[in-house]
Design a protein around this nucleic acid. Structure first.
Lengths: 234, 234
DNA sequence: AAGAATCCTTGATGCAGATCAAGTTTTTTT
DNA sequence: AAAAAAACTTGATCTGCATCAAGGATTCTT
């Protein structure tokens, strides 16, 4: 319950409802999609799509973890969204007059993607109203996630933001309070929108205050409630 | 052309394509909508919808200018989006499991709104695929606008952000380089995500540098190109 | 196992921009 | 037209966090 409250207003980059839109398709539509769809496997760190490139495809994340981000000329990336399986990359390029991706996507871990061309995708929306409603729901959720993240990164300060990220990893990805910390300090820093040094300092502080424990690459959230407090306005 | 480039990456809060989804409806659908729709007039400063309230309605902005924002407990508001006529408030609440608005909306100037209940709106999406595609396009554009704003507020510094806002007002709202500055310093500060004092200081600076002129409540962008440069990375 | 490279930690310094303060101008009220 | 309130400007100070710097711990290379 408290977790839900947090997710609404002070969200990290990951949604919590897995929206399944494939099951809705009719057999005909399914086989159309099957025939047009191509599967691509990406290794950890590989680029899935590039900001500024022609937007010709919609990509279904079937397995893995993907970072959606905007690149700036200064080299600082802004992480917009983190997508586990069951998400769709490229929906936000569907508005008229647009023909390029406004973001890049990169695989955090080995990732399996299914690719369809936009025409086919648009076709499905046109022929299946329920599918179309699902897509609207997904876009609406993405909107809310990005807004929550926007709020978080502009209104909270470093301690709160990092607490947010840790809670997000525990709740949304690993679904337990002790989990392998596979992200480097650099990746954590990027997600939380701060410097690597700040991440190190704050993690040390959290350890000193007995909010978390870290042993052999695993992070354990010891005092969930206090960490949650910090995440609300740290 | 340069303006377009700017809008893609370094957007202010306002979109530039007016997407008309009403014209797409069949006569039957139109009359259904007519029968269900209620018109409400808001005066400058009045609240149109409130963050946390039950999300039961979709609102069409027919006339005026609306601020979409998130409220924080500290009293600082985060402006997500600014909507002139032809926009729809509440689309991002359409995802499953959601039942409240995650944002508030307030009228910047006198504003005319048409209100429909969600059921009727969902019905239209189900019966009219072209309408549904328009809604998807609109949501996709909102996504892009918020992402651009997110980028702008986190990556640029004050001078660039304020330049952005001024260019946005000139290009998107008034569509000329000399326009009445109806927004107060406080409102500008809120949109650009900075303090009122910073706005005053920067405007003075812009005037000293002959980038803008201000006389009797009107702002005139004198050196568009240099202001544009500043907006790119100020 | 030694060396190189990367990652992590911790302290010292610098800076953009918020906050505080105080005066000036404009608008609103009466 | 006078008084009060709100909006605006400008300078002085404060602060959160980035950046710089340098040593320690891991991991990768050979």
């Amino acid at each position: 319950m408290t977790e839900e409250q947090a997710s609404a207003q002070h969200s990290c980059a990951i949604g919590n409802n897995l929206i399944s839109c494939m099951e809705i398709l009719t057999p005909d539509e399914s086989s159309l999609l099957e025939s047009k769809m191509v599967e691509v496997n990406y290794r950890k760190g590989e680029i899935i799509c590039k900001q500024g490139a022609p937007a010709t495809q919609i990509m279904f994340v079937r397995e893995g973890l993907v970072k959606i981000y905007m690149e700036s000329n200064s080299g600082e990336n802004l992480v917009l969204h983190i997508m586990p399986e069951m998400n769709i990359i490229g929906l936000s390029t569907l508005f008229e007059g647009n023909n390029v991706y406004q973001f890049s996507a990169q695989a955090y871990i080995d990732t399996r993607i299914q690719v369809v061309d936009m025409q086919t995708f648009r076709q499905l929306i046109r022929t299946n109203p329920e599918f179309s409603l699902k897509i609207i729901a997904l876009l609406a959720e993405y909107n809310t996630i990005i807004s929550g993240r926007f709020f978080c990164l502009t209104q909270k300060q470093t301690y709160g933001r990092l607490a947010d990220v840790l809670l997000c990893l525990a709740n949304r990805i690993y679904k337990q309070r002790k989990f392998p910390l596979s992200l480097s300090r650099k990746e954590l820093a990027e997600i939380a929108g701060m410097s690597v040094e700040s991440v190190a300092r704050i993690l040390t502080r959290f350890r000193e205050e007995n909010l978390i424990e870290m042993e052999c690459k695993h992070l354990h959230i010891v005092d969930y409630d206090r960490l949650f407090d910090i995440s609300l306005k740290g």
